[in-house]
Computed example of a mutant assay.
Amino acid sequence: MSVQVEHLVRYAPGSTRRLLNDVSLNVPTGAFVALVGPSGAGKTTLLRAIAGLDTFEQGTLLLDGQTMGTMRDRARKIGFVFQNYALFPHMTVAKNISFGLDVLPRSERPSRSAIAARVQELLDLMQIPDAGASYPARLSGGQRQRVALARALATGPKLLLLDEPFGALDPIVRRSIRTWLKALHERLGLTTILVTHDQDEAVEIADRIVVMQHGQIVQDATPEELNRNPQTAFVMEFLGEAPSFNGIVQDGLMVPDEAGLLPFAVDASVPPGPVTAMLRPYEIQVCGPDERSAQEPVIPLVAEGARNGYRHYRAQLAERSVPFSIPDFTENTVEIQASGLLDISRARLFRDGERCG
């Protein structure tokens, strides 16, 4: 199922403040899209509008090219999973999963045996085949999340909407279940839209990441493109640690304000003037003082140990320390001395928060 959102506007109740400000989004059939951004960016508001749970004042929303006039129309086509699972505590797992089928009009409701078969099929799919007779309180967080997903899928929807579905899970379970969810999405041929505040989660499982801020979409791209070519300083910062360095572009060079940083050549399209250079810690490189003039001031470099496949360091500038890292490969022969100079030539340049080089 495709989702097409055009110029959507939603106001806060009783206010002129826009929760969604002229939002347009196209999600083709079979895509896995993550909506990311800080609290209040409009992620959940957009998801609820797509689900039909909230109204909007302006714009158009089409599912498979058509408007969905009633919640009943949407309920058969959309599965929605909330952060808190929203399971019925007084019902068994099996009854929770079958709820959407049990409440269908008699003329549309499958037989009891067909419903029971569907429930067991979903329990098997969720890898909790023996949980049907249990109650939600007796399940782990990861199991409850799988039950919530099974319930959302019971009516055979083509669109799955997930609102912070892993927020209550511990990190180990969270990593496991999101990998499993990606495989489930591909196996069932779903269109999936995920709201998350976890950029690592979005990068790992989504085909596209939609970054939102102040009720607007600021960038919509693949994870690779977002990292390589962020259009704003906000996107650069939101998607991961990004040390920043102020400086000025003059005579084709970016000259940093702080001592111990090497000037570097910039593209001819970057006009002269003040800029902010931003890059990832693993993109910072170190040069020894012998590679520059003796007058170039060097800065102290402190090792902080190895983790997650990198050796981590800090460079002590005059008024702050800056993290940088080097891949911890066995064949890596890079040795960091006690002092040196930082090469930040792999940085992206921003002016007034917008990309300029």
Rank of each mutant, 00 (worst) to 15 (best):
60 T>K: 12
267 D>F: 10
39 S>N: 11
23 V>W: 02
95 K>H: 11
116 A>Q: 14
340 G>D: 07
6 E>G: 10
71 M>C: 15
241 E>G: 15
292 R>G: 07
140 S>K: 03
69 G>A: 15
155 T>R: 14
212 M>V: 06
47 L>V: 03
247 G>C: 10
142 G>Y: 03
28 P>R: 13
134 S>T: 14
263 P>V: 05
249 V>L: 09
214 H>F: 12
352 D>G: 11
42 G>N: 06
106 R>W: 10
144 R>S: 06
136 P>M: 04
138 R>A: 15
289 P>I: 05
45 T>Y: 05
50 I>G: 02
255 V>L: 12
223 P>E: 04
76 R>F: 09
107 S>K: 14
211 V>L: 08
225 E>W: 10
154 A>K: 00
77 K>S: 14
324 F>P: 00
339 S>G: 11
10 R>H: 09
3 V>W: 00
353 G>D: 06
253 L>N: 12
99 F>A: 09
75 A>Q: 12
80 F>P: 00
302 V>W: 12
235 V>Q: 04
339 S>F: 11
165 P>M: 00
68 M>G: 09
265 A>M: 15
54 D>G: 06
239 L>C: 04
198 D>F: 03
159 L>H: 05
340 G>C: 09
123 L>R: 01
211 V>Q: 02
281 P>E: 08
183 A>L: 11
107 S>C: 09
159 L>T: 03
294 A>Y: 05
307 R>V: 12
195 V>Q: 00
81 V>E: 01
193 I>S: 01
166 F>N: 00
317 L>Y: 04
342 L>G: 04
348 R>P: 07
343 D>V: 07
58 Q>K: 15
165 P>S: 02
125 L>I: 03
12 A>N: 11
244 S>A: 15
272 P>N: 13
121 E>A: 09
123 L>W: 02
235 V>F: 06
51 A>L: 07
270 V>P: 05
59 G>R: 07
354 E>F: 14
252 G>V: 08
326 I>Q: 09
182 K>V: 03
223 P>V: 04
98 S>C: 10
150 A>N: 00
357 G>P: 04
88 F>H: 08
29 T>P: 08
105 P>I: 08
116 A>D: 14
99 F>R: 06
172 I>L: 13
244 S>E: 14
247 G>A: 10
332 N>D: 10
42 G>I: 04
2 S>A: 10
255 V>Y: 06
188 L>T: 03
357 G>I: 07
122 L>A: 02
277 A>K: 01
23 V>E: 02
102 D>Y: 09
264 F>A: 08
292 R>V: 15
221 A>N: 12
242 A>Y: 04
310 Y>G: 06
237 E>T: 15
293 S>Q: 13
193 I>P: 00
268 A>C: 13
61 L>S: 04
105 P>W: 08
233 A>F: 06
93 V>F: 01
164 E>P: 03
312 H>M: 10
261 L>E: 04
338 A>M: 15
83 Q>A: 02
320 R>Q: 12
265 A>N: 14
143 Q>C: 06
291 E>K: 15
129 P>G: 05
184 L>W: 04
16 T>W: 09
271 P>T: 08
90 H>T: 12
90 H>D: 11
63 L>P: 00
110 P>L: 03
31 A>V: 05
182 K>Q: 10
325 S>L: 04
228 R>G: 09
243 P>H: 05
328 D>Y: 13
130 D>A: 12
140 S>F: 03
